[in-house]
Amino acid sequence: MPSAEVTRADATRGASSGRRVRIAHLYPELLNLYGDSGNILVLRKRLEWRGLGADVMEVHVDDTPSFSNVDLVFIGGGTDREQRIVCEKLLGVRNELAAFVEDGGVLAAVCGGYQLLGESYAMGDEKLPGLSLVDLRTERGTPRLIGNVAVKSRICPHVIVGYENHGGRTYLGDGVEPLGRVAYGNGNDGTSGFEGCLYKNVVGTYVHGPLLPKNPGVADYLLSRALERRYGDGSLEPLDDTEELAANQAMYDRMMSGDIETQ
């Protein structure tokens, strides 16, 4: 193992650098499809393994969130009913959340959370207003886009792998960069070859599974951007990600060899 890598045992060093990342986990009781709460565990541990601090604030349905002292916001995926509840809650603090995004705040949104970022999203035959944080829209389509997915993205050195299950077709506006290109699966709409979105420090994606355990490069991208915004230094010591990357590669290899079927 290269000496520059930080092993899991190094976690005993403590948060010696004094740098901390403040994470707001929005509505975990509603938005936790396919283990999305596991993403928060990954962010916390990857900070702790480097001797950095992690402050995780869970925002529940009866809470009024504030983003003034937050570095990273996470919104998971949920059912149509839960997505509607969350959107109504967030519309009440939309201006503050938009100011956070425009100021370079880091926001990661998965599936239903991703759809809420745009100007509108469809629920059955109904068109509902979104948060208008990113220039995108989501329409309803058939059939559902279900199966494993692999995405090549500039934000991390490895292919992003996971699982998608969505009836929405998401279309990006001019100037909004996709998270990446689909190597396997469907992505945003099943036809464009794009998956997810990148806008300032916002990452939106349909990749569940959860997203971060098999994709450490995505986790580190989010953490690095959060540290850069707060401290002016986004550098992260490399970790020994042998197990995570082996799981990532095994899943990707199975997709590309045809051992995993998509629906």
Results as ranks from 00 to 15, higher is better:
Y114Q: 12
A108P: 01
L90W: 03
S257I: 04
L222F: 07
D220W: 00
T64H: 14
N186P: 07
N148P: 13
T142H: 13
Y114H: 12
L223F: 08
E195V: 02
G76S: 11
I160D: 01
G258A: 14
V161C: 11
F100E: 05
G204E: 04
I85E: 15
G78L: 03
Y184A: 14
R140D: 06
A54D: 09
L30H: 08
S192Q: 10
N69D: 14
V73I: 15
M251Q: 15
G162P: 01
Y163I: 04
D135W: 02
A98R: 13
G168F: 00
G51V: 12
E96C: 07
D10K: 13
T12A: 09
G38L: 01
L179A: 11
E261K: 07
G217T: 05
T191A: 15
L47R: 04
D189N: 13
L136I: 06
E126D: 14
R84H: 11
Y252K: 04
E228W: 02
V59W: 00
I23F: 05
A247Y: 08
G18F: 03
A122W: 03
V182K: 00
E102F: 08
M256W: 12
T79M: 11
R137P: 01
R229H: 10
E244A: 15
R13E: 06
L107N: 06
L239D: 08
K127A: 10
Y171S: 09
L128E: 15
G112F: 01
G168T: 01
L26I: 15
V21G: 03
S16P: 06
D36Q: 09
A109M: 08
R144I: 07
E261C: 07
A219H: 03
R229S: 06
P129K: 13
